[in-house]
Amino acid sequence: MDLVAFFILIWPPYVANGSAVFSSRLKTRHPLDFGKTLWDGRRIFGDGKTYEGLAIGITAGSTIGYLPNLLSPHITPLDAFVLSTTAVLGDLLGAFIKRRLCMPRGYPAFPLDQLDFLLTAFLIYSLYAEIPPIYILAAVIITPLIHRATNYAAYVLKLKREPW
């Protein structure tokens, strides 16, 4: 396994997913679901999913996520954008599922919280580019550990209300 290629592939979705939380520092945030509920009376996504977080996640994932390619090219800027955008959309899908399962915002839902963003990004990316199966397996193994560590750091920095 080419470790450099592996980390360059997972970096844009990681950056996109992890940077959206910086929107919590903004004074005004706008929920993606406009506070609306579905037939079940529950919010579509909840207050934690905002236009600002979406924009920050996609922008950071597409730019900061692409930077390692300046040293060792493995993906294109378009690839970084696709991986970042679909990672953020995967996280939205996870929030939607959690709301349908009556889980409140911030409730830990392993492995949904840890893998929704990455597996969605990989699924869409694999529609036009090959991802070695060993990369997917390695990502599924290490992502929950990295996710836990970065969420704890965000909690310590007061970017998140929960350490998970």
Rank of each mutant, 00 (worst) to 15 (best):
M1A: 13
L3G: 00
L3W: 13
V4M: 10
A5T: 07
A5Y: 03
A5N: 10
F6G: 04
F7G: 06
I10N: 01
W11S: 15
P12F: 05
Y14H: 03
N17L: 03
A20D: 09
V21G: 03
S23N: 08
L26D: 10
L26W: 12
L26R: 05
L26Q: 07
L26Y: 05
T28D: 12
R29S: 08
H30N: 14
H30C: 02
D33Y: 12
K36V: 05
K36F: 14
T37A: 12
G41R: 07
G41Y: 08
R42L: 10
I44N: 04
I44C: 12
F45G: 09
G46Q: 11
G46N: 10
D47G: 12
D47S: 14
G48K: 11
T50V: 04
Y51T: 03
G53T: 08
L54M: 14
A55K: 03
A55G: 04
I56T: 10
G57C: 08
I58R: 03
T59P: 02
G61S: 12
G61N: 11
S62Q: 00
T63I: 15
I64H: 02
L67W: 11
L71K: 12
P73N: 07
T76S: 15
T76V: 07
P77W: 09
D79H: 14
V82W: 10
V82S: 07
L83R: 10
L83N: 11
L83W: 11
L83T: 10
S84V: 07
S84N: 09
S84D: 12
S84F: 06
T86G: 00
A87R: 04
V88F: 05
D91V: 04
L92T: 02
L92R: 00
L93D: 01
G94M: 03
A95H: 06
R99V: 08
R100S: 06
L101A: 14
L101E: 09
C102K: 14
M103S: 04
P104V: 13
P104R: 15
R105A: 14
G106F: 12
G106R: 09
P108H: 12
P108V: 11
F110N: 00
F110L: 07
P111K: 04
P111M: 08
Q114I: 03
L115A: 07
F117C: 01
L118D: 01
L119E: 02
T120M: 15
T120L: 14
A121W: 02
A121Y: 05
A121L: 03
L123G: 04
L123M: 13
I124T: 04
S126T: 09
A129Q: 14
A129P: 00
A129G: 01
E130M: 06
I131E: 10
P132E: 13
P133Q: 09
Y135T: 08
I136V: 15
A138P: 10
A139V: 06
A139Q: 11
V140D: 06
V140H: 01
I141T: 05
T143H: 00
T143E: 04
P144T: 02
L145R: 02
L145K: 02
L145W: 06
I146K: 00
I146S: 11
A149C: 08
A149Y: 02
A149T: 13
T150F: 08
N151W: 00
N151K: 09
Y152Q: 13
A153M: 15
A153V: 15
A153G: 03
A154G: 09
Y155M: 02
V156W: 11
L157M: 15
K160C: 03
K160S: 06
R161Y: 03
R161P: 00
R161T: 15
P163V: 08
P163W: 09
